[in-house]
């Protein structure tokens, strides 16, 4: 890839979460065709596209959950092929889900502690790290509450703390802003922008809220129909004709003649 990466000039080529020539077919349906991307550590990379564009499939490939039909996913140069899901977390790729999926009967602190334990530290240390992560994400006061008794917005924050506490090299956030109001989005952007610095990780942000994407990301990849149609910095993506067409569907409704 020859595009310029304004914020990641110093990264080594292998210090990245990469998709190389990834193709995924489900029977005759092509979910992804020849997708290449490289997310560097310490950057926030956006992945956008209309519904059904293949975003979720790409995330599944990058977490080793979906084996690509062709091509491969790599973490710091190592192929994800053949790793079990608990191992992918240990290699350093974690994710959140649209539904927060907190453990309902565990306390918020225990929820995050499980993830810290997953990185192989002893319980006492895991608890301390978990509390730090909750504090950073702004949920320290909910530490002792059970997952199911916490409001939905905080459940999502806890899911983020859970993804970060094991200090992954890369964290994948799946539509963290869905259903949030403007104020919540504001603080979410702040958190996401601060993640690379605080946790030393690269962030892949999948999001429909364009305001959040444009403000949080340094680079953006646009998928449509399983195909990458544009990649670049936010203002370039906003100005891109292909992207507008994909989102507004001008092919279906031709623009009126001037």
């Amino acid at each position: 890839m020859s595009a310029e990466y304004p914020l990641t000039g110093a990264s080594e080529a292998s210090d990245a979460l990469e998709a190389r020539g990834v193709v995924v077919r489900f029977g005759g349906v092509v979910a992804l065709s020849n997708v290449n991307l490289a997310i560097h550590r310490r950057e926030v990379f956006g992945l956008i596209g209309p519904n059904g564009a293949g975003k979720s499939t790409l995330v599944n490939v990058l977490t080793g959950f979906q084996e690509p039909t062709e091509g491969e996913a790599l973490v710091n140069g190592r192929s994800l092929k053949g790793w079990a899901s608990h191992q992918v977390a240990r290699i350093g790729v974690t994710r959140t889900f649209q539904a927060a999926r907190v453990f309902p009967a565990l306390t918020a602190l225990e929820n995050v502690t499980v993830a810290a334990l997953g990185s192989g530290v002893p319980l006492r240390q895991a608890r301390a790290q978990a509390f730090d992560a909750l504090e950073w994400i702004g949920c320290a006061s909910a530490a002792g509450k059970s997952g199911q008794s916490i409001n939905y917005g905080d459940q999502r924050r806890i899911a983020m703390a859970r993804a970060l506490v094991s200090r992954p090299a890369f964290v994948l956030l799946d539509e963290p802003a869905a259903g949030m109001n403007a104020e919540e989005c504001e603080s979410l952007v702040g958190l996401i922008c601060a993640m690379p610095e605080r946790w030393g990780c690269g962030v892949l942000l999948i999001e429909h809220n364009m305001d959040v994407v444009m403000r949080a990301c340094s680079r953006i990849l646009v998928l449509d129909g399983g195909r990458p149609i544009a990649e670049g910095v936010p203002h370039a993506i906003q100005a891109n004709e292909d992207v507008r067409r994909a989102y507004l569907g001008t092919r279906a409704a031709p623009a009126p003649a001037r």
Binding site: T63, H86, F103, V114
Partner: peptide, 18 residues
């Protein structure tokens, strides 16, 4: 703690390294 997490959502627990 890992066992309780696994009992509630096995897939999620695995993703977190259990």
């Amino acid at each position: 703690i890992e066992m309780r997490a696994a009992a509630e959502d096995f897939g999620m627990a695995q993703l977190l390294g259990v």
